[in-house]
């Protein structure tokens, strides 16, 4: 059995002399399982996301992704790993405004040969793959060739999810993607996203301050305690 995420005695601080902003002793997530990371603002959620995505590296401890010691790698390797294995969804403004919906969804396959290969294996063509995911995320077909600026916020977040799912990366990391959505849209978004991640056997790692969302996930990590302990 392989692990999607494994964290050991992780400490991260912005300055060598500062208190660690983030401190996690141990965390494991099996591939295919989902993780909810909950914490108030300032609890180090964004930092943890950047660490997991390989944009930051910890001063102490190890982060393994898909059983690889990603946090020990050089920047170039980490960037490549992210392109191949991680689908990332932002809080909002996920899409490049100068590309169409389709072009945005196709971007990961243009930047990663691995994801391109998997998309082709599963759907034959990249377009078919993009159509599949846009369809699964309930984006009306009439919008596929439109500029993303014509979409509502909810539609934009679903397009972002479709993009994250393209090429079936093993990890989908989402940074409060529902915070800009109204309640109906949140339900809809959460159910579609969890279903689709499960369908391709990917692990969804989801960050939010909204405790209520924990019901969608297998595991929950609550941040903020580390600093309380240190204090």
């Amino acid at each position: 059995m392989s692990l999607a995420l494994q964290i050991e005695s992780l400490k991260f601080r912005w300055h060598p002399k500062a208190e660690p902003i983030l401190s996690i002793d141990a965390l494991e997530l099996e591939l295919g399982q989902s993780l909810f990371i909950q914490g108030a603002s300032g609890s180090g959620k964004s930092t943890l996301l950047n660490l997991m995505a390989g944009v930051l590296t910890p001063q102490q401890g190890v982060i393994n992704l898909l059983d690889q010691p990603v946090s020990k790698w050089r920047g170039k390797q980490r960037d490549q790993f992210r392109a191949h294995h991680i689908g990332y969804i932002f809080q909002q403004f996920n899409l490049l405004p100068y590309l169409t919906v389709m072009a945005n969804v196709l971007l990961p396959c243009r930047l990663s040969a691995g994801r391109k290969k998997r998309a082709l294996e599963a759907y034959g063509t990249l377009e078919a793959s993009a159509h599949h995911w846009l369809g699964q995320l309930n984006i009306p077909q009439a919008l596929w060739q439109r500029p993303v600026t014509e979409l509502s916020v909810g539609q934009q977040q679903r397009v972002a999810a479709a993009r994250a799912l393209m090429g079936a990366p093993e990890l989908i990391i989402a940074d409060e993607p529902t915070s800009a959505l109204d309640q109906d849209n949140v339900e809809n978004f959460m159910s579609v996203l969890s279903q689709q991640c499960a369908a391709i056997g990917s692990s969804l790692i989801f960050v939010s301050h909204d405790r209520y969302l924990a019901k969608w996930f297998d595991q929950t990590l609550t941040l903020g305690k580390a600093r309380e302990v240190a204090a």
């Binding site: 392109a83 996920n94 990961p108």
Partner: peptide
């Protein structure tokens, strides 16, 4: 900045 962050998230290197 958004544009750059999106590209970074998709695997673009700082280079």
């Amino acid at each position: 900045r958004r544009e750059m962050a999106i590209l970074r998230a998709l695997g673009a290197r700082p280079a």
